[in-house]
């Protein structure tokens, strides 16, 4: 059986900003795949290309067996997109929003009502069905938005940062929904900035940075290639920080003169931490404090690519901003 998503050498630029720079991707039918990368990596743009919202400048992509440019109508009948901005009307109730989407999907009045109540039940929104969306919490909105995407029983589901901005409990609920979706046989492609989320949900993870695929594999494969944790050292003074950084050399991560901090990958065992401290601060005069953290996405990128992810300000950056509004 053909893959649910096939991407070959797709490039896309918005003016001077190259959002996608020759991306290849394969997602098998029924698989949950994650696009993982920092803000502005091109994740949203790729989802927009695959959901036919924007055409690639070069390369080709097929979704559910159809070309996203030539057969876009066929693609649109088989996919659903839940984007970063909720596609909900605040002044309509949850039920009205779902019924409207169902009618737009071509369901008859009766079928739309049935499908709506089915989805309200499945997404635990029955009690809130008659309330306007304006009164919903962030997690409820996200669930309703996802439900609206599923009225047409899509073969391929795109979720663009489905949990960004959600509190931990809502995130857990959403993870549960995605897992159920996958169990139901749908192909899911989701984007996320959180390693933990990709790890939890996806069977395949594709790392994207600056419009390119930088690594790909199962969560286990990828984790095997990165240090799980990071040792942060706080120096006594700038001179001590310089000495620490010099001794760490290439291993130094996230050198920050402001806070006098420098990080180094570790496996988190006492033996390794002790050895590292002994190595970089033999006389015990340079390091004032230390802490061990879960590896951040930056560390993973560093380990996989040998360089820090392209530094960008927090918040939506040029290319994603463009992608969202163009």
């Amino acid at each position: 059986m053909a893959a649910a998503i096939e991407v070959d050498g797709v490039t896309k630029a918005y003016g001077p900003v190259t959002a996608l720079d020759g991306v290849d991707l394969r997602v098998a039918r029924g698989e949950v795949a994650a696009l993982l990368g920092p803000n502005g990596a091109g994740k949203t743009t790729l989802v927009r290309v695959l959901s036919t919202l924007t055409g690639p400048d070069a390369g080709a992509a097929r979704v559910a067996g159809y070309d996203v440019v030539a057969d876009r109508r066929e693609v649109r009948r088989r996919i659903s997109l839940t984007g970063q901005f909720a596609a909900l009307d605040e002044l309509q109730t949850g039920e009205e929003n779902l019924r409207m989407t169902a009618r737009l999907r071509g369901l008859s009045g009766g079928d739309a009502r049935r499908r709506t109540s089915e989805l309200l039940g499945r997404f635990d929104l029955v009690a809130a069905a008659g309330r306007r969306v304006a009164t919903y919490s962030g997690g409820m909105r996200r669930r309703l938005d996802l439900a609206a995407g599923l009225v047409g029983r899509p073969e391929v589901v795109f979720l663009d940062e489905p949990t960004t901005g959600l509190d931990p409990r809502s995130r857990q609920e959403l993870w549960h929904v995605v897992a159920e979706l996958a169990a139901g046989g749908a192909t899911v492609l989701l984007t996320t900035q959180y390693l933990e989320e990709a790890d939890h949900l996806a069977r395949r993870i594709t790392f994207v940075d600056a419009g390119r695929v930088v690594a790909e594999g199962t969560p286990a494969e990828l984790k095997g290639r990165v240090a799980g944790e990071r040792l942060d050292l706080v120096a006594h003074d700038p001179g001590a920080l310089d000495r620490l950084a010099a001794r760490l050399g290439d291993r130094a991560v996230g050198l920050d003169p402001e806070t006098l901090m420098v990080g180094v990958p570790t496996d988190g065992t006492a033996a390794h931490v002790r050895a590292l401290l002994a190595e970089v601060d033999a006389d015990g005069r340079a390091v004032a404090r230390f802490a061990v953290h879960q590896a951040s996405l930056d560390d993973v990128f560093l380990a996989l690519t040998g360089q820090a992810p392209t530094i960008r300000p927090t918040g939506p950056t040029a290319s994603e901003e463009v992608a969202a509004h163009v």
Binding site: R48, S51, T52, L53, R73, R76, R77, I79, S80, L81, G83, Q84, F85, A86, A87, L88, D89, T101, L104, R105, D145, A148, G149, G152, H325
Partner: peptide, 14 residues
């Protein structure tokens, strides 16, 4: 246009 509704509609071929 500033919300997500247009994207949703377009992805549904409306």
């Amino acid at each position: 246009l500033t919300g997500g509704i247009v994207d949703r509609l377009r992805s549904m071929d409306v």
